[in-house]
């Protein structure tokens, strides 16, 4: 427990001390909110800003979670990971500490955007919604921190990871309905988006945040909160289940590959060492 909490605290500290990261990660969501709000100005949605805000929160939490990978690779490149790995502490606990801190930071980011959202007119009808939203944010953060750590322990160098991150972030966010409704996508991409865990994450979170859980199936389908796969309807609650399954898979893969990863191979300078 001591290892997990100490690593958690260290990573949170590191994030808070990095002011530039903190500010940019808060500014960028509002840039997206501004840019994409015109797309959502359709008559199906009564509150397009809230609708988009929910998507942006999910996308931000997702991207922040993936940053765990960057910070893990940074730790490897800076040599600090070596200090951890030569100690008798268990790698599993190190992996958990990394994942939990990333999930925490991601959730905090989501909350910050949510708070700013309240100032721009976001309102909940039921006060319990806020609790559900918090739990949903934590779930999302945890799931994708797992994915992030998994990617980090697979990658051999920091520059490779840059490419991998781009390759993951772009399709995951843009083919999920977070920024652009899936119905706007070309047929092929729409098909692809059904394999994207972020699609279900977005639908699940949006349903909770916009308090649409009680709507009939037809309305949910219209709003893109439920999906019709050849007559089989995926409800928002099933989406939640799908995320949980993805989460379990990611966490398993992440801890497993982190425990086995050979961090000797990632070096600060590819020209030095074999």
């Amino acid at each position: 427990m001591r290892t997990i909490s100490a690593l958690w605290l260290r990573n949170i500290r590191g994030f808070v001390r990095d002011r530039v990261k903190l500010v940019t990660s808060l500014v960028i969501p509002f840039f997206f909110l501004y840019v994409f709000s015109s797309i959502f100005k359709t008559d199906q949605v009564e509150d397009p800003t809230a609708f988009l805000l929910a998507g942006i929160i999910v996308a931000t939490v997702f991207q922040t979670s993936l940053n765990i990978a960057t910070s893990t690779i940074d730790d490897t490149v800076s040599g600090f990971m070596k200090e951890i790995l030569v100690s008798p502490t268990s790698r599993f606990k190190v992996a958990l500490g990394q994942i939990l801190s990333a999930a925490t930071i991601a959730t905090a980011q989501g909350i910050l955007i949510l708070i700013i959202g309240f100032f721009t007119g976001l309102r909940f009808n039921n006060w319990e919604t806020i609790i559900y939203v918090l739990f949903a944010l934590m779930l999302v953060g945890l799931v994708f921190s797992g994915l992030g750590l998994f990617l980090a322990s697979m990658v051999k160098s920091a520059s490779t990871f840059q490419v991998v991150q781009q390759a993951v972030v772009l399709p995951f966010t843009f083919l999920s309905g977070a920024y652009i409704p899936i119905d706007f996508l070309p047929k092929v991409l729409k098909f692809v988006s059904y394999f994207n865990p972020m699609t279900y994450t977005t639908a699940f979170f949006r349903t909770i945040m916009l308090e649409k859980g009680g709507l009939p199936q037809g309305d949910l389908l219209k709003l893109g909160l439920a999906f019709d796969l050849n007559g089989f309807i995926i409800t928002p609650w099933m989406s939640g289940g799908i995320i949980a399954i993805f989460g379990a898979l990611f966490l398993y893969l992440a801890t497993n590959s982190f425990v086995r990863a050979d961090f000797n191979k990632i070096s600060r300078n590819p020209l030095v060492r074999r």
């Binding site: 260290r10 500290r13 590191g14 001390r17 990095d18 730790d75 800076s78 040599g79 600090f80 070596k82 200090e83 030569v86 600060r268």
Partner: peptide, 13 residues
């Protein structure tokens, strides 16, 4: 106790 050839401190802390 190990002191590696390359630095292994946590620079931000």
């Amino acid at each position: 106790g190990v002191v590696f050839q390359t630095q292994t401190l946590d620079e931000k802390m």
